[in-house]
């Protein structure tokens, strides 16, 4: 056996425990999620039976009916859709126009404003949540959709992402369009924006995911039951030390399902958006 093949053999032997480790990690992720998904379709009697089952013995949709009886989960879903949809729609407009301005224009105070935007990335939300609540309260937006949405629209990270995307485009494109008599906003909207579609999709997906999963801000800025989002409504439901396990499983699955679907179709964008930031740092 040549030394080279000996090395190959050795590496393959090492490969087995590594592979087992990787599989264990994968199971550690999958089993809990699958167990929860299955449990959402088990009758309450089976959930509390001993020993616990993994696969459902009988399938039922009763849990989904029960959870609606206990909390108005349809309303919570609607609120989550409004929160995620509203924030995302505005975020795409505001962050992409800002990113475009930093990428394409030269103007007085550019580096100062850019630095200011950069600095806000360093401010943790948890640190400013108290004054933020007071500001929203004093502006009369407490316990309203506006209060939920408006403060969460601008994200410095998104501005940077859009700026990076626009920076890659040739300036001649804008010049040519200007000569053709297109307005500045027209150039942005009709020529430039379509060129950065992947960045827009990434921004959209990250923003939807972020606000759909957001727990802290909805808890701070809403008080009435009708304003609760899925994330905070379910948190409060489970917080009452509920013994309706089936309903809790069903609720968690309802809140998870849209993100799972989004992940299946947009995994590439999730990874690019979240991992990409690590490379520029």
């Amino acid at each position: 056996m040549s030394p080279k093949t000996a090395k190959k053999v050795r590496e393959n032997i090492y490969g087995i425990p590594v592979f087992i480790l990787l599989i264990i990690l994968a199971l550690l992720v999958l089993i809990p999620v699958v167990w929860m998904a299955f449990s959402a379709f088990k009758p309450e009697k089976e959930i509390i039976s001993w020993p616990p089952t993994f696969f459902p013995q009988t399938l039922t949709s009763q849990n989904f009916v029960d959870v609606q009886k206990r909390i108005n989960i349809l309303q919570y879903m609607l609120n989550s859709v409004i929160y995620a949809g509203g924030t995302t729609a505005l975020a795409v407009i505001v962050n992409s126009t800002a990113g475009y301005a930093y990428a394409f224009y030269n103007f007085k105070g550019k580096s100062g404003l850019f630095l200011l935007t950069l600095a806000t990335m360093m401010v943790p939300f948890q640190v400013i949540m108290v004054p933020l609540f007071l500001i929203v309260y004093k502006m009369g937006m407490y316990d309203s959709y506006w209060g939920l949405i408006i403060p969460r629209v601008v994200v410095a990270g998104s501005i940077f992402m859009m700026r990076a995307a626009f920076t890659g485009l040739p300036k001649e494109l804008a010049e040519a369009a200007r000569i053709d008599g297109l307005s500045e906003f027209g150039i942005f909207r009709k020529i430039m924006l379509p060129q950065v579609k992947p960045a827009i999709i990434t921004l959209t997906i990250l923003s939807i995911n972020g606000s759909w999963n957001d727990l802290l801000w909805p808890m701070i800025v809403t008080s009435s039951t009708e304003m609760r989002t899925l994330a905070n409504g379910l948190a409060l439901f489970i917080g009452q030390n509920t013994i309706e396990y089936g309903a809790a499983f069903a609720g968690a699955l309802i809140s998870l399902a849209p993100m799972l679907i989004l992940y299946i179709f947009g995994q590439k964008y999730f990874v690019e958006g979240m991992a990409g930031s690590g490379l520029k740092g």
Partner: peptide, 29 residues
Amino acid sequence: NKPSRCAYLFLAPSIVLLMIFNVIPLAAA
């Protein structure tokens, strides 16, 4: 519509929102 001026229009929403919901809250904290 002059490039150097409209840049401010493009930036205005983000700067205003950042001021009200980021910079001022930090100072307020």
